[in-house]
Design a binder for these strands. Structure first.
Lengths: 198, 198
DNA sequence: GTGCGATGTATCGGTCCGATACATCGCGGC
DNA sequence: GCCGCGATGTATCGGACCGATACATCGCAC
């Protein structure tokens, strides 16, 4: 993909956890990835006009393609888990690419995240308990709301963990965004597929 | 307060919305505030040992104090609302200092935040509806969880807005953290004071 | 024919964070 | 008595990221 397209795709995929990738971050990153040999500039293909209609006469679009080393590095990145894997953004990114990794990794990351959120929850309970009279009503309300969010996320994570353990989760990739070809149709979803909304 | 203390206080007050202020951000900020004339270095007061026990012989602690210009600027900052007032961190910070501003400001910020979250909610519904078959099961689950969080926050905000409108919210500051002296005891809280936890 | 929103690439200044360094205080254990 | 160790405390540095901005083209509507 080219930069603009990449930004749109990522914004759609990660929309639940962050607003949008800024250009001031996107373009330097692409250069960094290219310098490391993980992506290359691929030639623009103006022949496939039926694939991408309404875009015949192109200009300076730079199309990037992942390399073999890049794929290897990507697999390594989403499988390894450090402390930053469990903060809000890090976990969200890992989770969004769960379909690209194995069950053991998914389970490890889900449990690490749960531990982290439980710690945050305990911290909030502490503040609500010990420092309640020192803080004003609005601050306390904020902590209560945050505590509530923690409790809900722990329940959500536990559902997902139970789901993984019972084997009711997809192992193979669903749709090839980076690699290209789709290698399998999507097996049962991680949740109970509660998709009431149209 | 001095830096370390400030960090602890802010971490307790804002714990629900962010982890902790880093030193790499705190100390440069203090210098910036001092350069702008909004805070000054106050003399260490070793006389009030009964106020702060277990800290008699101090070292190089730098104690800061807010100036009159700083108080004015602070009041200005929490009352004015730009686009950044409604993102996650900006709103959290404003909300944590709601006891320091007036009802009109609180109402304006709560409504701006609600609008913003409603937009995010619609965006997520769009993705879940239009791009559902293009995304894998985990990504969809992430969006569902995010959508759920949006819906809950909207309900929370509407409760708070109704509360403000009915006049059941404190107008005067509760405890003087920056200014020093407490000027009033805390009036009724914003919520229904559902404080079941000990 | 012209303006305007979407598409596209790119940079710059400023801010923030994580890691790190360094020093002291208070306390408990040996 | 003294030694280590966690809490207290100030400070900097490199790297990453963001918001604003600039500039150019495409397609379409008025």
């Amino acid at each position: 993909m080219h930069g603009y397209e990449l930004r749109k795709e990522l914004t759609a995929k990660l929309g639940a956890i962050r607003a949008a990738i800024s250009y001031g971050s996107l373009y330097p990153t692409l250069r960094r990835l290219q310098a490391a040999g993980w992506i290359t500039e691929a030639a623009e293909t103006p022949a496939t006009a039926e694939e991408v209609p309404a875009l015949t006469s192109r200009r300076g679009r730079v199309v990037y393609k992942i390399t073999a080393e890049g794929k290897e590095r990507f697999a390594q990145l989403i499988a390894q888990a450090g402390p930053e894997t469990y903060d809000d953004t890090g976990f969200g990114v890992h989770f969004a690419f769960f379909a690209r990794t194995d069950q053991a990794t998914r389970l490890r990351i889900l449990e690490g995240r749960r531990r982290k959120i439980e710690e945050r929850r305990e911290g909030l309970r502490d503040v609500l308990g010990r420092a309640a009279e020192r803080l004003d009503a609005y601050t306390l309300e904020l902590q209560r709301h945050g505590l509530d969010a923690c409790e809900r996320e722990v329940r959500w994570l536990e559902e997902l963990i139970a789901n993984e353990r019972s084997g009711r989760a997809p192992t193979v990739p669903n749709i090839g965004t980076a690699g290209g070809r789709r290698e399998d149709n999507s097996p049962p979803p991680p949740g109970e597929t509660r998709n009431e909304r149209p």
